[in-house]
Simulated assay, not measured.
Amino acid sequence: MRTPLRFGIDLGGTKTEIIALQGSDERLRRRLPTPQGDYQASLQTIVRLVREAEQQLGASGSVGIGIPGTRSPDHGRIKNANSVCLIGQDLQGDLEDLLQRPVRLANDADCFTLSEASDGAGAGADSVFGVILGTGVGGGIVIHGRLLGGPNAIAGEWGHNALPWRSPADGPARRCYCGLDDCIETFLSGPGWAARSGLGLNAAQLAAAAQAGEPAAQQALQRYCEQLARGLATVINLLDPHAIVLGGGLSNIAALYERVPPLLVRHVFSDQVNTRLLPARHGDSSGVRGAAWLWP
């Protein structure tokens, strides 16, 4: 019997990408610019990608979509989206009408985690916590191969907890876009790290300067590692995951995987920490692959 075809779509802020998977094999990949601030045009972009992929492959498939937000379990419309044109829209219902088939939606961090737990760095682990360290800080949880969901559709949103064990060395309080002060995202996102460093560099420049041995940048990176360890320690104390997989632009800093694990021990309620800290296997492709994996 032929393995089913699954389409995964990553609806990003600047590009919309589709992938076609048959088992774990990639059959097709394509992307188009995401229409800025235009909901109807975004719908048509997704439909176009699916139709053209089906025409090229000569077969139809299931459709899963990763979005920069989440579908409310209360009313089915999109909430918590940084692409604000999606907020309040019945994205799932509209796409099901246009594509004439069921569609599954999930937060993009959930899709990342599902991808890495299915055939990525966390494959074979009973429990995986996936972390996005990029323009924001997100997360997802996969238990025994299935995404963990809850009544609020916010499982894994550790970036909007306050930084734990705060000290004066962490600097002054900063307001998060969510309206609260000192969310983890204001420390560990790329823009948050860059702003708090006070060096006038963006995150990529800051990481490069640290690697080049610039003392102030190295100090900023060490502080980042300590803050990341504190944030992840609370996750380990709560979930005790077998693996934590890092994604997003800052996950490419190799020093994180050397420096953070020894720093966890002080804050994790255990004599030693057996949770593995791993870089994503599929890198930037994990989100779109995870969207395809929304259909088992």
Rank of each mutant, 00 (worst) to 15 (best):
K15E: 05
A195L: 15
L99G: 09
Q222R: 14
I65K: 02
L221Y: 15
R289K: 09
I141A: 03
A117W: 05
I87V: 08
G23Y: 04
N161V: 01
G149T: 15
L11Q: 08
E26L: 07
S270R: 10
P215C: 12
E17T: 09
Q36V: 14
A210C: 10
L232Q: 05
L188W: 00
S286Q: 08
V268F: 02
G122R: 13
Q219K: 13
G58I: 04
L277H: 03
W165I: 01
Q40C: 10
E17L: 12
Y177L: 11
E214I: 05
S42A: 12
I46N: 01
R77Q: 14
Q36M: 01
Q55V: 06
D38K: 07
D126S: 14
E116P: 06
P151H: 12
I19P: 09
W295F: 03
N152F: 15
H282A: 01
D181N: 15
Q22K: 15
E17P: 04
N274Q: 10
F129K: 12
S167Y: 09
I244C: 10
A81W: 00
N161R: 13
Q219I: 03
L43I: 03
R6S: 08
G179H: 01
S167V: 12
G76F: 04
S118A: 07
I154A: 15
E52K: 00
D240I: 10
E116N: 11
G139N: 01
E157A: 12
A125Q: 14
A59V: 10
L21G: 13
L5S: 05
C183F: 11
I154G: 01
G198I: 07
L294V: 12
G130T: 15
A194W: 06
L232K: 07
G136S: 11
I141Y: 07
G122C: 11
R230P: 05
S118M: 14
N252Y: 06
A204M: 11
A123V: 04
L105E: 14
L86H: 02
A125I: 00
L148E: 12
Q272M: 12
S251V: 09
